[in-house]
């Protein structure tokens, strides 16, 4: 790892505040969905529209010119109202959604834990899904076999459940396994999108600890959450996104309180935690 040797080299001159290497650079990012008003684009409807001379394409401008740099080892909290563009931003960083305009530069391997859950097939057992998820992420069988025990231990579902179809899992168990797979992929960048809300309190603590461990290893984490205390506790910086634009970025406590003022809600138990 080049970053390790670099930091060792700098150890001799500690007083100088050396910036960590770049992890993610986003320049003027726009993402537009071209949504057809019809749910199912079919030839017949298209012909009918052509006959009437209509155009039924509506553009949803999900991100409008977002720019930022994130250095390695940061935990970046992302807050914003529903529909603000948080998940779109996360998907763009993961390379799932192409930018409509602008540029994204990502250093290293990305592991995602997005709102929809993993591409898990519910008919398969937990074990088979771990294999499938790992292979999709680009690991080979040996690497997966090596990490399997760690993944299963971390998720704490018990051996019985690992060999049962995931149909039999509760949503919390599902989330635990998904989280465990994502953090054990040894990502350089981990993206967690509202995925912690179904875990119980103990698992949440455990996942916090694991994330802190990852960022101590100079990994970068993006955390989208509506649990505002999660953001202030865990993150080294925060971003507030509204209507597709970056409104504020900086110290988590400041950003969260600005966001709270915007929402006109106080720091009640409801806003603090994922309910």
């Amino acid at each position: 790892m080049s970053s390790l040797s670099a930091s060792e080299a700098f150890l001799e001159t500690p007083p100088v505040d050396v910036p960590a290497p770049l992890s993610v650079r986003v320049e003027d990012l726009h993402v537009t969905y071209r949504a057809s008003l019809e749910r199912r684009p079919t030839v017949a409807r298209r012909l009918r529209r052509l006959g009437r001379g209509e155009r039924v394409v509506r553009e949803v401008h999900a991100l409008r010119g977002v720019s930022f740099d994130v250095l390695q080892g940061q935990v970046v909290g992302v807050v914003g109202a529903n529909g603000a563009g948080k998940s779109t931003l996360m998907r763009a960083l993961a390379g799932i959604l192409p930018p409509t305009q602008g540029r994204i530069e990502v250093h290293g391997r990305v592991s995602t834990l997005l709102a929809l859950g993993v591409g898990f097939n519910a008919k398969l057992t937990g074990r088979q899904n771990v294999t499938l998820g790992g292979l999709a992420a680009g690991l080979d069988r040996e690497e997966i076999a090596r990490r399997y025990t760690e993944i299963a231990d971390f998720a704490e579902l018990g051996e019985d459940f690992m060999d049962m179809p995931m149909l039999t899992y509760s949503s919390g168990m599902y989330a635990r396994l998904a989280f465990s797979v994502a953090v054990h992929m040894e990502p350089d960048i981990l993206i967690v999108d509202e995925a912690l809300s179904t875990g119980d309190a103990r698992f949440k603590e455990k996942s916090f600890a694991r994330m802190q461990e990852l960022c101590a290893q100079a990994r970068t984490i993006f955390l989208v959450s509506h649990g505002l205390s999660t953001i202030t506790q865990l993150c080294t910086e925060a971003m507030w996104i509204d209507k597709g634009a970056l409104v504020e970025r900086g110290d988590p406590a400041k950003v969260v309180s600005a966001y709270r003022r915007f929402l006109k809600v106080g720091a009640t138990a409801v806003t603090q935690e994922d309910v």
């Binding site: 990502v106 290293g108 391997r109 680009g138 080979d140």
Partner: peptide, 29 residues
């Protein structure tokens, strides 16, 4: 860091075939 990914706007046209083929091969399993 080992690899740098750059994502730019979508254009109709082929991606670079070399890296694509490598990605494809890496995920054959």
């Amino acid at each position: 860091m080992s690899d740098v990914q750059v994502y730019t706007p979508f254009r109709r046209g082929l991606p670079r075939l070399g890296p694509y083929a490598r990605e494809l091969w890496a995920r054959r399993q």
